[in-house]
Amino acid sequence: MSAGTTSTGPVEQAGRTEPEVALAVAGLSVRIDTAAGPVLAVDDVGFSAPSGETLALLGESGCGKSITAQAVAGLLDPVARVVGGEVRLGDVEMLGLTPSERRKLAGPELAIVFQDALTALNPVYTVGTQLAEPFRIHRGLSARQARERALDLMRRVGIPEPESRIDHHPHQFSGGMRQRLLIAMAVALGPKVLIADEPTTALDVTVQAQIMELLRDLRAEHSMAVVLITHDLALVAEQADRVAVMYAGRVVETGLVREVFREPLHPYTRGLLESVPAAGRGDRLPSIPGAPPDLHSIPEGCVYQARCPMVQDICRTQRPAPEAVGEGRTSACHFSKELRHG
């Protein structure tokens, strides 16, 4: 089963069973109504996340990765609307569900960890109340039973002295502890898919490592598929099994992280990787010239044409579709084959 294709069933491959696909997104498009008119913030995005693995959605700010995550989780703001595609969670097509059917899956099947834990936690309730909420809503537990489960969760995610801290409010916790609380809430009901939207951006590096370790342990425990939304190449290299690189609302390259990072087959991915500072490299740090296109005026042809060092005439007239460029790899570039050999 390859990241980036649209098929959903498990595929037998040369004696090895690929892990079951927990989340498959295909052709997803999201339109946002802005003051300057509607924009297609997410355009024909596809990827699939297998159980027990981490798929990274990698891209710079504004590339649509968070909108994609929110569209999958059904949490888009009112100005944004899914205008096409499908999101399959196991056997269920999410986009066709009624709001109440969707609510039944929110928590037990699909959960999300937000970037800024301080604003994501409700300031006026104790963390115990908030941790107990999934059990109250979905399992119908009594307040006392749910509180016990909340304590278990706090122990599981490594919050010291849970018995006394359960009655504290979010502002009394450190940033790392708050992120642990968010993660605890997300895994409360053992979801099959966990979307982590920049879960460590607001944290310092040591805490970041602890949080990622916790996520990895929980992934193994629940054999969850983790979708990691990030702009951090190092984090992708360390944590993810697969990567889908996004640019201007589109997926430009997908594949196993080690393969994509060893030999990127899209000029954007290559540009990103070349921009990583390396120790002992004394010369000037290369960067990708220019800026991503304004979503109001996406050019005809390839979205990356304005910044691409390899741009040709065809790039200005024809939009390259994602093509298979190897086992489980796709690239949306007319010249991906040249990249491989060049």
Partner: peptide
Amino acid sequence: LSSPYVKLARSKGADDYRIVTHHALRN
């Protein structure tokens, strides 16, 4: 209602009534 904590509550499966009376109104 447009705050991140309401979004988090929705992600936990809270319905509209709970969102309004429990999460938003007290804030």
